[in-house]
């Protein structure tokens, strides 16, 4: 499939600090491509550059054949953006919001009305379209936020962490919507720090950390290349010394890395059953009580831990 997006050495610097460094990747038409990384990895900055909101400090990218630097207006016509924060007018109804945002995309008349009805049906809010957005739940607002990005049927849709801070039911609805859109032929660039979402949705995944692409490929390819062994997740509680346990596990034979976050210690190990007695002994020696042990097959979190030495949710 032809590439709809290509980036070439994209860079964004703020003074001395580099938010994005030498980022190069491509997305094929009809693909769901996820940028997976922790908060502050440079995902939103990348989306901001690709959507022409901020200018790159170096490099370039083309979308549908148009340079984001030299032909911003053509790029904007080809893309739809669903920002991380809900960017709607609370005192307008959902329908009024859609009318306004459709007008900003250049839609008018019967075409605009037709698209609004289609989007309202797609996001499941046709019956509440006349209510002001401020009366909506967080999940409903998220759905309208997505609907705005779909109005003009963009060739490439940017979705920047669209499930942050919502209930599981709304999250499920959003993930299903993304899959539906893709089935209808829409290309999606999806950013998230939830590995489960990236794993469920994506044809390919790019893992970013500190503004750099540290791994890129399909889920299978990534786990095969970087995720050999198993992932051991230990629940120790916030009152326990998780970092000390992570350090102790990291020194055990068969451990490839361990990190502690929010009362949980995650370790990449060759064989969970072989290392577990040593882990329990190390916890006991340090006076740390383990409340729960979870052994997982190789996954994206293990890949991230392997590549960075840190937990993905850090």
């Amino acid at each position: 499939m032809p590439d709809i997006l290509e980036t070439h050495g994209l860079v964004k610097r703020y003074g001395e600090r580099s938010a994005v460094s030498d980022l190069s990747f491509s997305i094929g038409e009809g693909e769901i491509f996820s940028l997976l990384g922790p908060n502050g990895a440079g995902k939103t900055t990348t989306i901001s550059m690709l959507s022409t909101l901020i200018a790159p400090s170096g490099g370039d990218a083309t979308i549908a054949g148009h340079s984001i630097i030299r032909d911003a207006q053509a790029v904007r016509r080809a893309i739809g953006v669903v920002p991380q924060e809900i960017a709607l007018y609370d005192d307008l109804t959902a329908r009024e919001n859609l009318v306004f945002w459709g007008q900003m995309q250049g839609l008018s008349g019967s075409r605009l009305r037709q698209r609004i009805e289609a989007v309202l049906a797609q996001i499941g809010l046709a019956d509440r379209a006349g209510q002001r957005v401020k009366t909506y739940s967080g999940g409903m607002k998220r759905r309208v936020n997505i609907g705005v990005g779909l109005l003009h049927e963009p060739r490439l849709l940017f979705m920047d962490e669209p499930t942050v801070g919502i209930d599981p039911q709304s999250r499920r609805a959003i993930l299903d919507t993304v899959k539906d859109l893709n089935r209808q032929g829409m290309t999606v660039l999806y950013t998230t720090h939830y590995m489960e979402e990236a794993a469920e949705l994506s044809h390919r995944i790019g893992i970013v950390d500190h503004g750099r692409m540290i791994a890129l490929g399909t889920l299978d390819a990534l786990t095969r290349a970087h995720g050999e062994g198993e992932s051991l997740r230990l629940r120790v509680g916030d009152d326990q010394n998780g970092p000390a346990l992570a350090q102790a596990i990291g020194r055990l034979p068969g451990a490839h890395g361990a990190a502690s976050l929010d009362g949980e210690v995650t370790a990449m190990v060759t064989s969970a059953s072989d290392i577990l007695p040593g882990v329990i002994a190390a916890a006991s020696a340090a006076g740390i009580r383990i409340r729960n042990i979870d052994i997982q097959e190789p996954n994206l979190e293990a890949v991230f831990l392997r590549l960075t030495g840190r937990a993905l949710r850090d």
């Binding site: 959507s51 909101l53 904007r76 953006v81 924060e85 960017a87 900003m104």
Partner: peptide
């Protein structure tokens, strides 16, 4: 602050 200005600016609006 609300992000709506940025959203306008990523549409074909100068």
């Amino acid at each position: 602050t609300a992000g709506t200005l940025q959203r306008i600016l990523v549409s074909p609006t100068s």
